[in-house]
Design a protein around this nucleic acid. Structure first.
Lengths: 108, 108
DNA sequence: ACTTTATATCGTAATATTGCAATATTAAAT
DNA sequence: ATTTAATATTGCAATATTACGATATAAAGT
């Protein structure tokens, strides 16, 4: 008990859930929005932006990276992070599709 | 320690994170997709659909409801669940906006 | 009134997440 | 070579989530 039963669900369902889960924390939403704003990929700046300690930010970045939401490239001393378009596009098409199907009918 | 520092983030950031978090589990994605398919709002059927015990499903439904993703209406003996368009639309516009802003430039 | 059916809640074990201090790693700068 | 700067990892405490058996609740059928 206690662990999510991922094996009982489809790959597609697990994929969406994984991406959604990674975005299920305000700090990670804040990171996404900051990366969107500054466009260029910074890392130490993110630590300065957020009200969290450096190891905590590093951990959040790792989770976003594992979910495919951001990319990190070594740039000399520091590491350049940026948004990975693919994950956002997956979410985008997914919810757009749901929204369109919803418009066709109502219930309750 | 251990608890999310929601108070340090904006309401908008917390709202998106809350909705995303609720969708961050394959069972809840499966529920969303089932409700989308059957359109009419059933509940016991969801229990039959999912590979999880009834209390577990009930708990997932509660979380989806708390996040505003589904609605539940009493219908005599049983309870009729259905997707709440509002939350989906919030996600939809949010990620559409991010996607559009991303197209304007690349990095890394 | 009693039973059945449908759903929710409680209690609890297993596991996962959050956050951070301390420490490690790695590359640049001196 | 040593120091500095940037980031990651480790270890751990606090908290949250996941799952389910047992039980409660509430309406419908008998």
């Amino acid at each position: 008990m206690g662990a999510t039963k991922t094996e009982h669900f489809t790959d597609a369902q697990n994929q969406i859930a994984t991406i959604a889960k990674a975005l299920g924390h305000p700090a990670r939403i804040a990171i996404l929005e900051y990366l969107l704003k500054v466009n260029e990929c910074i890392c130490g700046d993110i630590v300065n932006e957020l009200p969290l300690a450096q190891p905590t930010v590093s951990q959040h970045l790792k989770e976003l990276k594992n979910a495919g939401i951001i990319k990190g490239n070594i740039s000399g001393n520091s590491i350049c992070y940026c948004i990975d378009e693919k994950a956002i596009e997956i979410l985008n098409t997914y919810f757009l599709n749901i929204n369109q199907n919803l418009l066709k009918s109502k219930c309750c």
